[in-house]
Every structure is written in structure tokens, then in C-alpha cells.
Computed example of a mutant assay.
Amino acid sequence: MGNMMIRNLPDEVHNHLREQASSNRRSIEAEARAILVSSYVAKHSGGFGQQLRSRFQDMGVIGEELSQPRDKTVGEAAEFS
């Protein structure tokens, strides 16, 4: 595995990374690693939408038949007892 050191990271970026790492219960290094890995995976797998399209394209459900106009009618409010 490769190693890297990041120098001259702006304070606001470092602070945000530290807060994000804390909220995810990770070290700053582990958080940076997770961000880099997820970026790589998204770029090389095409993202979630592309994965769905690839999975279901052979079923014939991807295409013009899914291009339905959006229903903009307002729904009724729910009643809670």
C-alpha cells in the first residue's frame, strides 16, 4: 500500500475533516482514507445510478417507457389520531 503526506492543507479544510472524522468516529487519517477510497470507487464503478442502469438494462425497463411526466398535484394531508 502507498503512503502519502499532505502539507499546507487550509485550516478550514483541516477543521472540517476533523469534525467529520469525529462524527464518524474515525481518526483524521482514517476519514481522509475513506474519502479517497469512496471517490475512487465512485469514479470506477460509475456511481449508484450507473450500477442500477447496468443491472436492469437487459430487462428492457430502462428507456423511454420510464420518461413519464411528473405529477405535480398536491396530495392530501395525513390525519393522525
Rank of each mutant, 00 (worst) to 15 (best):
M1W: 07
M1Y: 10
G2Q: 09
G2P: 05
N3Y: 01
M4G: 06
M5F: 08
M5Q: 12
I6A: 10
R7N: 10
N8G: 03
N8V: 03
N8F: 03
L9E: 02
L9H: 02
P10M: 04
P10R: 13
D11K: 02
D11Y: 03
E12G: 00
E12V: 09
H14Q: 08
H14F: 09
N15W: 02
N15H: 09
N15T: 05
H16C: 01
H16V: 01
L17C: 09
L17W: 11
R18G: 04
R18E: 11
E19N: 13
A21G: 15
A21S: 09
A21C: 13
A21E: 09
S22C: 09
S23M: 06
S23R: 03
N24Y: 06
R25F: 15
R25K: 15
R26L: 10
R26E: 04
R26D: 00
R26I: 01
S27C: 09
S27Y: 07
I28A: 14
I28K: 12
I28G: 12
E29F: 04
E29S: 10
A30W: 10
A30L: 03
E31S: 13
E31C: 08
E31V: 04
A32W: 05
A32Y: 00
A32H: 04
A32E: 01
R33P: 00
R33W: 05
I35W: 06
I35P: 01
I35K: 00
V37P: 01
V37G: 03
S38E: 03
S38A: 04
S38N: 04
S38P: 01
Y40R: 05
V41E: 11
V41P: 02
A42F: 10
K43S: 08
K43Y: 13
H44S: 08
G46E: 04
G46C: 04
G47A: 11
G47V: 03
G49C: 09
G49K: 01
G49M: 06
Q51G: 06
Q51H: 05
Q51K: 04
L52Q: 07
L52S: 00
R53T: 00
R53V: 15
S54M: 11
S54I: 08
R55Q: 08
F56N: 01
Q57R: 14
Q57E: 15
D58Y: 07
D58W: 00
D58R: 08
D58N: 11
M59I: 11
M59G: 03
M59Q: 11
G60R: 04
G60P: 02
G60I: 12
V61K: 06
I62R: 00
I62E: 01
I62N: 03
I62A: 04
I62T: 05
G63I: 07
E65K: 12
L66E: 08
L66S: 08
S67I: 02
S67Y: 12
S67R: 15
Q68R: 15
Q68A: 06
K72R: 14
K72E: 13
K72Y: 12
K72S: 15
K72C: 12
V74N: 08
E76N: 11
E76I: 04
E76K: 10
A77S: 12
A77T: 10
A78Y: 14
S81K: 09
